[in-house]
């Protein structure tokens, strides 16, 4: 089990080693066997599990070495999607945006094998990470469903099956990424909330929703009605100014506190991470705080990712030691 005070984790993705990136390009061009690619993905996963243990993180992830981004993997593995092409998310970060062209469905479990593999490599708990139904719908082009509501509820049904399979495979921590949840909350928040509740209902494990960037103030305190144990948020990216929003109403869930900015290449100093945590501890009940970077570390270099996590783990150690 993870420590009860300021446990450390990450949001899900880690950078891929250069050899794996090159192999993925070759595979896409049809110049590499699927099995060869799988083996490289397993090696990279193994490496990241080892590295997370070395760093001293408490709750591990598989590192998503087999996923291109938040959306592509699910669109490729589920029925009903085709890939359109690259669209820009911000700066020079692009993602392959899928198109919904038929009813969405699940042919086979998507993540169970990866979860089992990752968990077999460590005695620490591994968190399973899914992209949520609202975000999958919102970050796809929809050419099939006349009503988006139906697309979202079909996705929720499929992701619930996946979540149940992961729990049966032994997952005790399940994170659902919903960074799009506040895209148009006046119209859609209730829809997104219901879809998430459908997935987490009676799962019997610790559930997390990850929400990053965007206008969080617009869904606070509504956000506290999400049917999860923890809400994981990006705070470092806006230099913890988001804390002001949470002063308006007591935070009644655990919080995944993003203390590392993944959108900037600069590595945080331990001191600034400590100061961020301390500011947050004035706003959130301390026993509710979990520490992580703002978002996945995919777009950092390997060196940046490791250095950023070192700063986070060291800061966590220092703050824990300060408690009388």
């Amino acid at each position: 089990m993870i420590p009860s005070y300021l446990p450390t984790t990450t949001v899900g993705s880690f950078p891929k080693p250069p050899g794996l990136l090159a192999a993925r390009r070759k595979y896409r061009r049809g110049q590499l066997d699927r099995e060869v690619l799988r083996e490289l993905e397993r090696q990279a996963t193994q490496e990241w599990i080892r590295r997370q243990e070395e760093l001293g993180l408490d709750l591990l992830v598989d590192g998503e070495q087999y996923r291109a981004d938040l959306v592509t993997f699910f669109a490729e593995e589920l029925d009903g999607f085709r890939m359109a092409g690259l669209v820009r998310a911000f700066g020079n970060r692009y993602y392959r945006k899928p198109v919904v062209i038929a009813p969405v469905g699940r042919r086979h479990p998507l993540l169970v094998e990866w979860f089992r593999f990752a968990q077999s490599l460590t005695s620490k708990p591994v968190k399973a990470v899914l992209t949520g139904p609202y975000t999958l719908a919102e970050w796809s082009f929809n050419e099939y469903y006349p009503a988006r509501r139906d697309l979202i509820s079909d996705l929720a049904r499929v992701l619930r099956e996946e979540a149940q399979d992961l729990v049966r495979a032994g997952a005790r921590y399940l994170q659902i990424d919903e960074p799009a949840i506040h895209s148009r909350p006046e119209e859609d928040f209730e829809l997104a909330r219901a879809a998430l509740a459908h997935i987490t209902e009676d799962l019997g494990v610790y559930t997390i929703v990850h929400i990053c960037y965007g206008d969080v103030a617009r869904i606070y305190p509504d956000m506290l009605r999400l049917a999860v144990d923890q809400i994981a948020l990006a705070l470092a990216n806006t230099r913890f100014t988001l804390l002001e929003v949470f002063r308006t109403h007591p935070f009644t869930r655990d919080v995944g506190l993003g203390v590392i900015d993944v959108t900037r290449h600069r590595v945080e100093t331990v001191e600034e991470v400590v100061s961020g945590i301390q500011r947050a501890l004035e706003v959130f009940p301390p026993h509710r705080v979990h520490l992580s970077p703002d978002c996945g570390l995919r777009t950092c270099t390997m060196e940046e990712a490791v250095a950023k996590l070192e700063a986070m783990v060291e800061a966590a150690r220092l703050v824990r030691a300060m408690v009388p």
């Binding site: 911000f90 990216n237 806006t238 100014t241 959108t263």
Partner: peptide, 16 residues
């Protein structure tokens, strides 16, 4: 420029 904000209800972000 500060942190990321969604540009209207699109999938694109900008630094506020």
């Amino acid at each position: 420029l500060d942190g990321l904000q969604r540009w209207f209800d699109t999938n694109m972000y900008y630094r506020i």
